[in-house]
Computed example of a mutant assay.
Amino acid sequence: MPTGKSSLPAAILFAGALLLSACDEAPKTENSPPPAPKISVAKPVVKKIIETDVFTGRFEAKEDVELRARVAGYLQEIHFKDGELVEAGDLLFTIDQKQFQAELENAQSSVEVAQSRLDLTKEEFERGQKLRTSGTIAASVQDQRRQEFLAAQAELAGATARLRTAQLNLGYTKIYSPVKGRIGRNLISIGNLVQANSTVLASIVSLDPIYFYFDVDERSYLAYSRLGRNGTRPSGRLTPYEVKIQLTDEDEPKHTGNLDFVNNRIDNATGTMRGRAIVTNTDLFLQPGLFGRISIPGSNEYEGVLVPDQAVGTDQNRRIVFVVGEKNVLTPTVIRPGPRIDGYRVVRTGLKGDETIVVNGLARVRPGMTIDPQVQELPPVAAKD
C-alpha cells in the first residue's frame, strides 16, 4: 500500500509538466508564418506572328442589276420563278411584240422601195454620163440625174438605219439576264404597261465572288500609311493581303478572301476610309447584306511574345503581369497589350519572352508576395473554351 500512495503524486507532477510544456509551445505555433500559396506560372509563348486588326462591315454583291425595258409596251410573259438562280443570257421577260413586228415589216418595205429607187437613179445617171460625152444631153440634165442618184443613196441609208432601229426595238421586247446570280421577285404582273427605261421589272445580284466592304478608322489608316512609307508593311492598294471574315454566329473567322480596293479619300462625315475584300463563294452561302468582322494584317511577320488573357491584370489605367523573381517573389511589370492571336494576347512592350509569369490566380497575389510556383508549359495555340 505505501507504494501506491507514492505513485499518485508522481503521476500528478508528470501531467502538470506536460501541461506547462504545451502552454509554452502554443504561442510558437500561432506566430509561425503560413506556407507560400501555390500559384500557376509559365513562360510566355514566343513564336512568329502577324498582328491582325478587326473591323466590321457587310457583304455586298459584286454585280447588282435592276432590270428595265428599253421599249414601252404591255408585259406578255414572265419566264422565271421568283428567287431562283439564273444564268447570264437567260430569257426573263417578254413584252408584246405585235407593234414592233409591224414596225419592222414597214421598215423592211421602206428599204426595198429605197433600193429600187437607187437602182433606177443609178442607171439613169450612168446613161447620162455616156450621153454627156457625146453632147447629146445638157449638163444641167446630167447634174439633176446626179443629184437624184445621191438623194436615192441617202434615202436608202436612212431606210436601212430605220430598219436596224426596228430590229433592235423588236429584240428589246425580250429581256435577258445580263449576269449570273439570284433574281428577286418580279415587280410587275403580266398585262401591265411597261415604261421604257423607267419601270423596274426585277433585280439580280451576283453571288460568286462576293464583296465585303468595311471602314477603317482614321488612326488605323494613318498607322498603315506610315508602315507602308517605312517599308515595314506594303500598302493595301498594292498588295492583295489575305483576309479572314467571321460571321455573327461563328466563334472564329472561317471565310477567306483578299483585299482588292482602298478608297481614294477619307469620308468627311465618319472619318473613316472605305476598304473592300473579294471573297470566293462557290457554295453561295454568303449573301449580300450579311454582317461580319474582317481581320486584316496589321504588321509583317515578326517574333512575338504572347500571354493568356487571365495573366494580364489592371493597375488603374495600366496593364500589368506578375513576374516571378529571385526567391519566388512577385514583381508587377507594366506591359502594352496588342490583339489576340491563337487564343493569346500579344505583348507589344514590357516582356522579352524569357520571364516566368503568373498565368492563373491573379486575385490571390500582390506585389512582393512570395509564392510556391507551380510551373506549367503553355501550348503554342491556346485551347478553346
Rank of each mutant, 00 (worst) to 15 (best):
R274Y: 04
N300D: 14
Q147L: 15
R348Y: 06
D385E: 13
P240R: 08
E250M: 03
V46F: 06
K62D: 12
A382P: 01
G343F: 00
R117I: 05
L91G: 02
Q129L: 10
N300T: 08
T94C: 00
V86F: 00
D249L: 09
V305L: 01
Y211D: 15
T199H: 00
E25L: 10
T52Y: 06
V381T: 14
L362R: 01
G361T: 01
I12F: 08
N317E: 15
P2T: 15
R132W: 04
P367K: 04
A114H: 00
D24E: 10
G128K: 01
L120V: 11
V279Q: 01
G236Y: 04
E123V: 12
V365H: 04
T282V: 09
I294G: 01
S225I: 03
A269K: 12
N263E: 13
V279E: 01
F149K: 14
A15V: 15
E105N: 14
S220T: 10
S198V: 03
T272Q: 08
G236F: 12
K62R: 10
V324A: 07
L284M: 12
E123T: 11
S177T: 03
N230G: 06
T232Q: 14
I245Y: 07
D283V: 03
L150M: 13
D143Y: 04
N263R: 08
K47N: 11
M1G: 14
F285W: 06
P240Y: 07
I78H: 02
G236N: 05
T3Y: 15
S203M: 02
C23E: 09
A72N: 03
P209M: 11
N230F: 07
V194Q: 00
L150Q: 14
E123H: 09
Q246G: 03
L85W: 10
R265M: 13
F100S: 02
R164N: 10
